[in-house]
């Protein structure tokens, strides 16, 4: 990869997630919490990865073995908030950037022209397009939250690690006279992590040794998806099952290390 493709921003804080795949039961609470929090409209169809507006999708992984050796795992996929995002550099109108302390890749809806180049660039399919205007059944628009504006058709959107919660946490810290750049554990967590009944989603500052994600991301069972492409995701996964870890990346025959 040529040097110029990489955005080298070094942040003091690196918000990250460590998702314990072995603890995810695939219950879907995180997805519902995400939709409610971020004003993602309901749909009259089941999930359609080709058309649904979604920020968080839970993949079902299978080990591919026949019964009774089969095993399954659920893998929730938010935006990876890549350290080296493939999407941000390609946007022609600077509608998506990675330039704020914390390393969250932003998405500026009023700026987006809807060219979808970022979607072509992202191998995680974290980005979705508003193919139509959003619709809520009559009255249900009263449940819209004040956190995220409603996106019209024709713009791209994606998970922001509930960035508004980061803002709120910073504001609260400032009001209490604390350093907004040194938030305590769990002072800022996204809606999905908050909703998860098993606590499979840990969230915090990957740089901060006081946050549990710092340790967890260094676990021998930790892996990131498509690490070999150089996207440097800020979302880590944990699994004690080798077959799950192997599905985190692609390997060819001659690769020595195969994600186990």
């Amino acid at each position: 990869m040529s040097e110029s493709m990489q955005i080298h921003e070094h942040f003091q804080i690196k918000w990250g997630m460590v998702i314990d795949v072995d603890k995810c039961t695939g219950c879907g609470a995180c997805q519902v919490a995400c939709q409610a929090e971020n004003n993602i409209p309901p749909s009259q169809q089941s999930f359609d990865r080709l058309r649904s507006v979604h920020w968080l999708y839970v993949y079902k992984l299978e080990n591919g073995r026949p019964y009774p050796e089969s095993d399954i795992a659920y893998l929730p996929r938010p935006c990876m908030q890549c350290g080296n995002p493939s999407c941000a550099s390609v946007c022609p109108v600077i509608a998506t950037t990675k330039d704020e302390e914390g390393g969250i890749v932003s998405q500026i809806y009023p700026r987006c022209i809807g060219c979808r180049y970022c979607m072509a660039a992202c191998p995680y399919h974290s980005r979705v397009f508003n193919w139509f205007d959003p619709v809520w059944p009559k009255g249900m628009e009263k449940t819209l939250t004040p956190y995220v504006s409603v996106r019209p058709r024709g713009v791209v959107e994606k998970c922001t690690f509930c960035h508004h919660r980061f803002q709120l946490a910073k504001r609260r810290a400032r009001a209490e006279g604390r350093d907004p750049h040194h938030l305590k554990e769990d002072e800022y967590i996204p809606a999905c992590a908050e909703a998860c009944p098993t606590g499979a989603i840990a969230f915090g500052d990957l740089h901060n040794p006081e946050h549990k994600v710092h340790q967890l991301s260094r676990s021998e069972h930790a892996f990131r998806i498509l690490e070999r492409l150089g996207t440097e995701p800020q979302v880590y996964y944990l699994s004690r099952r080798p077959w799950v870890r192997r599905q985190g990346d692609n390997y060819v025959q001659k690769d020595q290390q195969r994600g186990e």
């Binding site: 955005i7 550099s89 390609v90 946007c91 060219c115 979808r116 713009v155």
Partner: peptide, 26 residues
Amino acid sequence: LDIGQPLRAWFGYWHANVHSMLTEVI
């Protein structure tokens, strides 16, 4: 037709991202 927000097509000039190949194209 292809871009989702045709009224914002001129953003390519106004908010140009010099890192994007698409900017050069526009």
